[in-house]
Design a protein around this nucleic acid. Structure first.
Lengths: 240, 240
DNA sequence: TTTTCCCAATCGATCGATCGATTGAGTTGT
DNA sequence: ACAACTCAATCGATCGATCGATTGGGAAAA
């Protein structure tokens, strides 16, 4: 269970699994995500990460500059993948009800397929010192992502499709409903992703009282949600 | 900012603020809750807690047996207050729609009035070692609380008031929607507690498609929610 | 030969926890 | 009345363990 101290030296296959990352780098990232999600960033030591990766803590520093850099990479990639996915899909519709479905369904699906990394992305800002450059950067990424929600909600209100008492309250409620998934949802329970995303989308449409011509809008009135989010890190690494 | 080294020795007023706890004990608890919520249990040192309380780390051990005992007390009290409140209020109604409103509204209100301690209660199980007695105890308390939700949801289905695709999914979605509040909601923003609880209750009734005689049930169809949750620890300590 | 990869050993700092000593306000004995 | 005693409360100093990070060097690959 440690490393491969076998007869064949194996020579650490150089076949890159994705974007030029070596096998060790991929394992390192996956170990960090796993442990950060499980025990939290502060409670995870670099020795824990190294052990889970199969290297020593010294070797770890050959692949990353610091424990914080490890966290920052995870958070940056997580935000980037989510924002790109949302930005791409939002171009497919001008209807506020469909656009809200894309946001809610996409965020829910992202947390369902990547419960570990999303949990780290969502909850470990606290690990970054208040006022630090790192924290400022992540907060900016988060604010940018949330700006899409603000925009879609206000568009829906302007077009008379949504009825919302408190925009601020509603936006944060909907987002935290999706992000909360990563605390209890575990994949491979036989759930269909599209069905799950539609379930959350329906809930959101009910929350904003979405309607046209006096008739409430449900998920079935929308074009079926397309799940195109690339799994970030939780999924198994590609076989080599 | 240290202690009261004034002319009058003050003699550490023995007036108990609540349940025989001295002023120092109350301050200690509040400091722990504040720091655990802000930085997390693992990232908070006993020196941090002691400094925030105005004592040394050695004195801290006169009032508590360990850092973990401090956390356990917070979690026990949090669960107890919530469970007692829910148990008490559920006796006031037999209607599944009202009972669900009590659960959702009560949990949302609890997180709105005590965002700090609820955040600790909800998210710091991870700090307790897997398989430890402490973790087992807290998991039991949490399961007991969630059993009320399971019961109410299945009652509503049996009576034909609720229509739910996936009971397990729905229960956890609703709970995490309420608990998620403590991550972004901050009190004293001019929000009315009853209105806020009703907002969440409405959302939940929509999620379970609550209806009687073919007509959807909204919050206004229910008796107004009564907020009776005793603030746990986030609020200011009683003046003496 | 140079570069990449990896480790044992070790750094200073900080962790949770404990120590013995001190203070001061009550209680008891005479 | 006053010394003798008890006890909760608090401190500075320090414990062993672990923290994140660094060093210098060996082995393997290019």
């Amino acid at each position: 269970m440690t490393a491969n101290k076998d007869v064949t030296p194996v020579t650490e296959l150089r076949v890159p699994s994705s974007k030029g990352a070596t096998a060790v780098e991929v394992r390192l990232r996956r170990s960090a995500v796993q442990l950060f999600a499980e025990k939290g960033y502060a409670a995870t030591g670099i020795r824990d990460i190294a052990r889970a990766t199969g290297i020593t803590s010294a070797t770890l520093y050959h692949y990353t500059s610091s424990k914080e850099a490890l966290l920052m990479d995870i958070m940056r990639d997580g935000h980037r993948a989510l924002t790109e996915s949302v930005q791409r899909q939002l171009k497919s519709s001008d209807l506020p009800e469909e656009r809200l479905g894309i946001l809610v369904g996409g965020l829910a699906a992202a947390h369902a397929t990547n419960p570990l990394s999303t949990r780290v992305v969502d909850s470990e800002i606290r690990a970054l010192a208040i006022g630090s450059d790192a924290r400022t950067e992540i907060v900016m990424l988060r604010d940018h992502f949330e700006s899409f929600w603000t925009k879609v909600l206000s568009e829906g209100i302007k077009e008379g499709v949504f009825t919302i008492d408190d925009e601020h309250l509603t936006r944060l409620s909907l987002i935290s409903m999706c992000t909360g998934m990563s605390y209890w949802y575990r994949p491979a329970l036989g759930h269909d992703l599209v069905q799950l995303a539609t379930h959350f989308s329906d809930l959101a449409l009910g929350a904003v009282r979405a309607q046209r011509n006096g008739k409430a809008i449900r998920g079935r009135d929308l074009r079926p949600l397309r799940i195109d989010l690339v799994p970030i890190l939780d999924s198994e690494p590609p076989h080599i």
